[in-house]
Simulated scan of single mutants.
Amino acid sequence: MKFTSVVTAGTAVVLALGLAACSGGGGEGGGGGDDDVAITMLPKNLGNPYFEASTAGAQEAAGELGVAVDEVGPDAASPDAQVPFINTAAQQGVSALVVSANDPTAIGDALEEARSAGTKVVTFDSDTEPQFRDLFVNQASAEGIADKQLELIAEQIGGAGEIAILSASANATNQNAWIALMEEKLASDYPDIELVETVYGDDDDQTSFDKTAALLQSHPDLKGIVSPTTVGIAAAARYVSTSEYKGKVAVTGLGTPNQMREYVEDGTVEAFALWNPTDLGYLATQAAAALVAGDITGAEGDTFEAGRLGEYTVGADGEVLLGEPFVYDASNIADFDF
C-alpha cells in the first residue's frame, strides 16, 4: 500500500526526489554511508525507459546512503546476455548486484559464483529461482498484477470478446507468472472473454509493433490487446493509433506515463497500470545496502528502513513487496513524469 499512498498524492518522480531530500529516514536505510560500498545495477536491457526510471531510483537511494551505483547491461533482453556482466561485476568485487533477470535459471550459475565471492544479490522486477539470490524486490504481487490487467481489459471491451496478449520474451519470469494467472482467472471469472493468442515481442519496439499488426490481421474479431510490458504496450498503442482499429480495439497492460501519454490523450488507450519503477529501483538499492551492511540477511521476518518509503519486512522466500498496481488514465496521467 506504500506505492498507492505515494501515487495518489500525485507524486511524480521529480517530486519524489524532493521528498527524499526531506526524509528523516533516508540516511538510515542499510549501508550507513559507506563510500566503499559499490552496487551494480543490471536491468534486462539498456535503453528501456522502464529500467532508466528504476536506475534513477537506484541512484537516488545511493545518494542518500553514500554508496556508489553503476548501471551495466546488454542491448537486448535474452536469457544469457546478462552472464558476462555478472561475471565482470564479481571479478571487480562489487558489494552487491541488483538484477532484473531475463531468465529464472540461465544466470543462476553466474550469480552463485558472485555470491561465493562475497557479492550480495538482489533481484528486482523479474526474479530468478530463490536459491540464486539473497532477496527479491517484487513490484507487486503476481495476483494483483494479473487481476488489475484483467479488470482493465474487461471494462474496456464490455466484458466479452476475443483478446490477445503481447508479452516480452518467452523466458521472462514475471511475464510468464502474470500470464499463467490471467489464463486461470479468465477461465474462472471471465467466461465471455476468450484469449485467442499470446505472442512475444522480446521487449523490442519494432518486433512488438510487427506482432501487433500480425495479431490484428490474424484475428479480425479481436476486441483487445493486453501487453504486460512497457515496450509492448507502447508499440501496440502506436500501431493502433494510426490504424483502422483505433476506437475499436482496446489496448491496455503495463506502461509508463511518459510512453503512454499521447495515446491516452488521443483516445487510443483508455487506461493502463503500473507501479512506480523509480520506487522499485530505490527500494532494491536500499535493500542491497542493508544486506551489505549486515542489517538483514534476507531471512523471513527481517525488517529494514528504506528511506522515504519507510519500513519493509522480508516475506517468504526472501521476497520484499513494493505495493499494488496503480491505474493511469486521462484524469491523472498529467501528474506523472517518468
Score class of each variant (00 low, 15 high):
V99D: 10
G118N: 07
L135K: 04
V69M: 14
A106V: 01
A53C: 11
V98L: 15
G118H: 07
T40L: 02
F136K: 00
V137Q: 14
T128M: 02
A114M: 09
A89I: 05
G73H: 09
G118D: 08
A90G: 12
T40I: 03
N45C: 14
F132V: 00
S116R: 03
R115E: 03
T40E: 15
A117G: 12
A90M: 11
D70W: 01
A58G: 15
G57Y: 07
G73D: 05
G57Q: 10
V98R: 06
T88Q: 09
A114F: 08
L46V: 02
A140G: 05
S54C: 12
S78C: 04
S141W: 01
S100C: 11
E60C: 11
F124C: 05
A101K: 08
A101Y: 10
D127C: 01
A117H: 06
V72Y: 02
A101Q: 11
D125H: 10
M41E: 08
D125S: 13
S54G: 15
A38Y: 08
P104E: 02
A53H: 08
E60Q: 13
F124R: 01
S116Y: 03
S95F: 12
N102D: 14
A81M: 06
Q82A: 11
V122C: 10
I107F: 04
A56F: 06
A61T: 03
A62M: 04
A90R: 06
N87G: 13
L97M: 07
A106E: 12
L65G: 03
I107Y: 03
E112W: 01
P43S: 07
D125A: 13
I86A: 13
A89S: 14
I107M: 13
L111H: 00
L42P: 15
E129H: 01
A90Y: 09
A76K: 12
V83Y: 02
N138D: 15
T123G: 13
G47Q: 08
L111Q: 06
A38K: 15
Q92C: 04
L46D: 04
S100M: 05
V37M: 11
N48Q: 11
D127S: 13
D75T: 09
R115K: 10
A89C: 07
L135Q: 11
V67A: 14
F136P: 12
A58L: 00
E112R: 13
I39C: 15
L42C: 02
V67Q: 07
F85I: 02
S141Y: 05
A117L: 08
V83H: 00
A56M: 11
P130L: 07
K44C: 14
S116D: 14
V83D: 06
S100P: 07
Y50V: 00
A89M: 07
I107P: 07
